[in-house]
Design a protein around this nucleic acid. Structure first.
Length: 221
DNA sequence: ATATCGATTATCT
DNA sequence: GATAATCGATATG
């Protein structure tokens, strides 16, 4: 019997110090890392391919610009914790707090992932009927985790379940790991879906990765 | 292929 | 009372 063609690389959690840096730095460094959800008998894993930095109370586009409120408290706490918010009455989105504790309320928004493990389960969580996965192509897989609301749904992330949870430790089940993957090329663009500070280059993506959110085929230049 | 629009609720003004 | 770090459906070229 041969060994399987690929064995999953060992994954280790990130240090607290990883998150205790500027949101720009954390955003860039998060590209290529892996988001994991461990539950009894099941692991979900997906590579981080698109994130955005939110700079804190002085960033007009950031939730933290409203100050340290009940909603945004996690952003103002220690780094490495999940800030989950509910938007448009429909969707949850995941951030991780960063910077130094109590400082600026900065964070990084997870915008798109590339599914690695537990794809069937992600599809189920997204509400796709079982047969749809058999003929799933790249286009369909993109709909699993390409977008902040989509990836949260695929991972079963809610405010009640995950807000304030420690992403630097596997203990709570939702965490971020390093499997040795290193990005080839990173692109930086303005952030998406905001109405304030729309031209600041704070969106970080793995160049050319098909799971990055947004338009696939630009019409013309 | 791109454009527009409705859903649905926590949060802030 | 208005708005929002979105998504999916529908309409139209």
């Amino acid at each position: 019997m041969r060994t399987p063609p690929t064995r999953p690389a060992p994954i280790h959690p990130l240090n607290r110090a990883f998150f205790a840096r500027s949101p720009r730095r954390v955003a860039r460094e998060l590209l290529g890392k892996v988001l994991l959800r461990d539950s009894p008998g099941l692991r979900l894993a997906a590579r981080i391919v698109e994130v955005e930095a939110y700079l804190g109370e002085n960033d007009p586009a950031a939730h933290a610009s409203a100050g340290n409120t009940l909603r945004t408290a996690v952003l103002f706490g220690p780094p490495g914790y999940a800030y989950v918010y509910f938007i448009y009455g429909n969707h949850y989105c995941l951030n991780v707090s960063c910077g130094r504790e109590g400082k600026a309320g900065s964070g990084v928004l997870f915008r798109a992932l590339e599914p690695l493990l537990g794809i069937e389960e992600m599809a189920r969580a997204r509400g796709f009927p079982p047969p749809s996965l058999g003929d799933a192509q790249m286009k369909d897989l993109r709909k699993l985790t390409s977008g902040p609301g989509r990836l949260a749904q695929a991972f079963g992330i809610t405010r009640a379940r995950d807000n304030g949870s420690d992403l630097a430790s596997p203990h709570a089940g939702l965490w971020i790991g390093d499997d040795g993957f290193r990005p080839i090329r990173i692109e930086i663009t303005p952030r998406i879906g905001i109405t304030q500070a729309t031209d600041r280059p704070l969106r970080y993506i793995l160049a050319g990765n098909p799971f990055v959110s947004g338009r696939r085929t630009p019409a013309k230049n």
